[in-house]
Amino acid sequence: MPLTLSADEWEVVRLSLLVGGVAIAATLPIAFGLAYLLARGRFPGRVLLDGIVHLPLVLPPVVTGWLLLIAFAPAGVLGGPLERWFGASVLFRWTGAAIAAGVMALPLMVRAMRLSIEAVDRRVEGAARTLGAGRLDAFLTVTLPLSLPGVLAGAVLGFARALGEFGATITFVSNVPGETRTLPIAIYSALQIPGGDAQVWRLAAISVALSLAALVASEALTRRRGGHGL
């Protein structure tokens, strides 16, 4: 079994990293905003919002993918405006795969970030206020840096989840080589082909290596921050 990757397999790895990276970069501010709202906000409908954020975690991924397909179809609530205003569609595109990955990673990211925001001592923020910091200033200099390890850990966790996304992606944007065929989908495809075993082994090994690297990175990040007094 050759250990080197073919051009197609490299393409799968590149695409997976692109989809996962873009998904997490785009989801990060949304996840942080939601986490902050859920950790600190007191408003009617908070429990409902919490439930909606967690839906992708408990729904069958196929259902999430199907709902995305309905929403982003040319006549859908999101697909319609996208088509009209930008002449763009995310169907069968890597951008669609990134949306699916981001939606599926969102609950995990929000959970990790919410915990870290809740762990910030609000009395320390109060101290910052008495020292002349306004609300935003106190948020930027105290709340944000103190919750940063959890925010980064949430992002890395979300990235690992995004790399593994299968069900919602294949339902939403199908299995298009070079566009939506990410690692798990490529492995699934290889399993369908007689004699694809060697490719499955190689792609599976890469999955393990990437996931492990993400976990080690997250651990190292948290530790390094810890060494600086967090």
């Binding site: 001592d121 009395r123 320390v124 101290a127 910052a128 105290v142 840096p145 600086h228 007094g229 967090l230």
Partner: peptide, 10 residues
């Protein structure tokens, strides 16, 4: 000056 100091840990 708070009883527990409340220095910024970071």
């Amino acid at each position: 000056v708070f009883q527990d100091g409340r220095l910024f840990p970071h």
